[in-house]
Write a protein that binds this DNA or RNA. Sequence first.
DNA 1: CTGTATCCTGAAAGATACTG
DNA 2: CAGTATCTTTCAGGATACAG
Lengths: 128, 128
Amino acid sequence: MTQTVLEPLPADFFPADCPVQSVPVLGSRKWTWKIIRCLEAGPRRFSELRVPLAGITAKVLAESLRSMEQDGAVLRTEFAENPPRVEYALTPLGRSLLGPMDAVCAWSREHLGGLLAAREEYEREHGR
Amino acid sequence: MTQTVLEPLPADFFPADCPVQSVPVLGSRKWTWKIIRCLEAGPRRFSELRVPLAGITAKVLAESLRSMEQDGAVLRTEFAENPPRVEYALTPLGRSLLGPMDAVCAWSREHLGGLLAAREEYEREHGR
DNA sequence: CTGTATCCTGAAAGATACTG
DNA sequence: CAGTATCTTTCAGGATACAG
């Protein structure tokens, strides 16, 4: 054995540009990942997205899409027609998120049940 | 070409137990992923965690750890000593999160810069 | 059809002070 | 050392009504 004690973690353990920073950046919004899945097969219209995203309001969908557009993950294309038509599509950057998302989904299939069970178990043991 | 139109997405596109659900479940808290990184090499004491997690308050660290304990990702061990000593360690479930986290970090190293640049670009073009 | 304008709510983070 | 107790702020989400 070469290591008997654990080295203490330094105050600069996480550099300012540490990639782990990005996790909350990506995962903070509730609908982002589902929207990406909905756009995976091709561009979709606003009202077309509202169907699979059951329960989302127009306001929240608009906010989420704008936020993703700001991040360069989604391209918004407005057609000069009447009635108006707007299409949303994944950019290459948006498409690059499918990789991490698949990794998280794979984890989920294996372990999310255990996590949820632990959560319930904890509630039973401690109060409510 | 076998597909000229895109199939509309059904209202039940996301089943109730769809793994994509887990992304916000995992990513919603700000400090969770950094805490996991801090516990990767071995168990750590409460005050030991506060060093690398620069800026976190005792309250938020305690809340985060309890939430992770509830989810079965962290094991809390209290030693009957004086002064008190408490150690936090990753459970196997907690350790299983390192996989998805590495995937996200790999994405980050490649693409986070582009995302941040797009965000700034958007701000320059539109107001503020 | 594709949104915006308001108003409201709840959860999490942070600041600060205090305790077994 | 390892937390808890308050208080405040922020902000995403949701409900509802309205508009180009």
